[in-house]
Computed example of a mutant assay.
Amino acid sequence: MRVFRYGKKELDYLKKRDEALGAVIDRVGMLEFEVVPDLFAGLVKSIITQQISTKAASSIWRKMRGYFGDITPGIIHSASAEDIRKCGLSMRKALSIKEIARAVVNGELNLSELHELPDGEVIRRLSSMNGIGVWTAEMLLIFSMERTDVVSWTDYGIRQGMMRLYGLKTLTREQFEEHRERYSPYGSVASLYLWRLPPDV
Rank of each mutant, 00 (worst) to 15 (best):
R173T: 01
F4V: 00
Q50G: 09
L43D: 02
W195E: 13
E116W: 03
Q175L: 04
L165A: 10
V189F: 06
V122W: 00
T49R: 14
L11Y: 05
D155M: 01
Y186S: 07
A41N: 07
H115Q: 10
M64I: 04
S80V: 04
L111P: 05
L140I: 07
Q175A: 09
Q175W: 03
V151N: 01
G29D: 13
L168Q: 08
I52M: 14
L31Y: 00
N130W: 15
R85M: 04
I158W: 00
Y183R: 06
E181K: 13
S112E: 15
E108A: 11
V134L: 05
P199S: 13
L11F: 03
L89T: 06
R180Q: 05
L194N: 08
Y183T: 02
S96R: 07
I52K: 09
Y156T: 13
D38G: 05
K16T: 12
R180P: 01
L21G: 10
L171K: 07
V3C: 08
K86M: 13
S80N: 10
Y13M: 04
I48T: 07
D12M: 05
E32D: 10
I100V: 13
V3P: 01
I84K: 08
F143M: 11
K16P: 08
Q50I: 07
Y166R: 01
E99R: 15
V151Y: 07
L95Y: 11
R173A: 06
R5E: 11
L117S: 01
E108N: 14
Y186T: 03
G88T: 11
M30W: 14
R173P: 01
V134I: 12
N106F: 09
Q175P: 00
L171M: 10
V36D: 03
E121L: 02
R125F: 09
K8R: 14
T154Q: 13
R62E: 12
L109C: 07
R182W: 15
E82M: 08
L126D: 02
D149L: 07
R27Y: 14
K55M: 10
L21W: 12
L141F: 08
Y183F: 15
T72L: 12
T49W: 13
I47L: 09
Y6A: 00
M129R: 15
S112H: 12
Q51I: 03
A79K: 14
I76H: 08
E138G: 03
L194V: 03
K169D: 15
I76Q: 07
S128T: 09
N130A: 15
D119R: 06
W153L: 06
K93L: 09
M129S: 09
P37H: 00
L111R: 02
E108K: 13
S96L: 04
E178N: 06
